[in-house]
Simulated assay, not measured.
Amino acid sequence: MPVLIVIPARYASSRYPGKPLVTLRGANGDSKSLIRRSWDAACEVAGVDKVVIATDDARIAKASEDFGAEVVMTSTDCQNGTERCAETLENLGAGYDIVVNLQGDAPLTPAWFIEDLVQGLRDNPDADVATPVLRTEGRALNGLLQDRREGRVGGTTAVFGADYNALYFSKEVIPYTGQDFADHDETPVFHHVGVYAYRPKALAAYAGWGAGPLEKLEGLEQLRFLERGVPMLCVEVAAKGRQFWELNNPEDVPRIEAMLAEMGQD
């Protein structure tokens, strides 16, 4: 079952223009671009046959090629990472059974998140799309709630049924708990990890659909599948002592740098 990882990256982010080229300082004081850190994270994943960066921007392409990445140029018409993955697969041709979308703003994604995700899709032949979810501890949940209180669009949360198929994803914190949690308390809220694994037929179908009203309202590409009645398998992953956060806003840079320092990551 050949696996392709695509890292979609665009320069013209409405919330944070030029985000893939923002530098993040590691534990040893050295700085690397966000796209480089995302590439490094992808290259640590076992059982992957190819990793590529997909972009429509010459600046991102050059920066990526300078550190040795393989780049696939895609159209400026792509509305999100899933569409960019679909175009990348079309450009590369057949030969992959699973395509992983590792979005370029998640440099703290551990290799086992993706390995478990791919295994989850393999173990569920009826599933065409899967995504990881991480149960939050109080510290992460309080960070999500603080972002919302301060008017920032931060991480995404997920709710799913007994069959682990997604019920909904939101940039609001769901479900409502009405409780206070200490930093290391386990909570009932699941942080959606912005990674997806698709079978090629699901990518091809997605590219032919227009965005639905919920996708437009939330700005979440995965809702297009749910609005079309396509189940999305949620694969629960374990933190194993690692912190996870995505770079959504400029305010996230010091937060992620602090996490890199705390975890001793260069």
Rank of each mutant, 00 (worst) to 15 (best):
D49V: 04
D49F: 09
D49Y: 11
K50W: 11
K50E: 15
V51R: 07
V52E: 04
V52F: 02
I53Q: 14
I53S: 11
A54F: 08
T55K: 08
D56E: 14
D56Y: 07
D56N: 14
D56Q: 10
D57W: 13
D57A: 13
D57G: 13
R59W: 12
R59S: 12
R59H: 14
R59F: 15
R59K: 11
I60N: 13
I60K: 13
I60E: 14
A61H: 07
A61L: 03
A61F: 09
K62A: 13
K62Y: 11
K62P: 12
K62H: 12
A63C: 14
S64Y: 03
E65P: 07
D66M: 06
D66F: 08
D66S: 13
D66H: 08
F67D: 15
F67A: 08
F67H: 05
G68C: 05
G68K: 05
G68W: 01
A69G: 11
A69L: 11
A69F: 07
A69Q: 06
A69K: 02
E70R: 12
M73Q: 00
M73V: 07
T74Y: 02
T74H: 10
T74I: 14
S75F: 04
S75N: 03
S75Y: 00
T76M: 11
D77W: 10
C78Q: 07
C78Y: 05
C78R: 04
Q79Y: 13
Q79C: 13
N80F: 11
G81W: 04
G81Y: 05
T82C: 10
T82H: 00
E83P: 06
E83F: 01
E83C: 08
E83G: 10
R84S: 12
R84C: 10
A86H: 01
E87L: 09
T88Q: 01
T88P: 05
T88F: 02
T88A: 04
L89A: 05
E90K: 14
E90Y: 09
N91Q: 10
L92V: 01
L92P: 08
L92N: 01
G93D: 00
G95I: 04
Y96S: 00
Y96F: 14
Y96Q: 03
Y96V: 02
D97P: 07
D97A: 04
D97S: 09
D97Q: 03
I98W: 02
I98R: 02
I98Q: 03
I98A: 03
V99C: 05
V100G: 03
N101I: 04
N101Q: 12
N101A: 12
L102C: 06
L102Q: 08
Q103K: 13
Q103D: 12
G104S: 15
G104Q: 10
D105M: 04
A106G: 14
A106F: 09
A106N: 15
A106D: 15
P107M: 01
P107T: 01
L108C: 13
L108V: 05
L108D: 09
L108M: 14
L108E: 09
T109M: 13
T109S: 13
P110L: 03
P110A: 09
P110K: 01
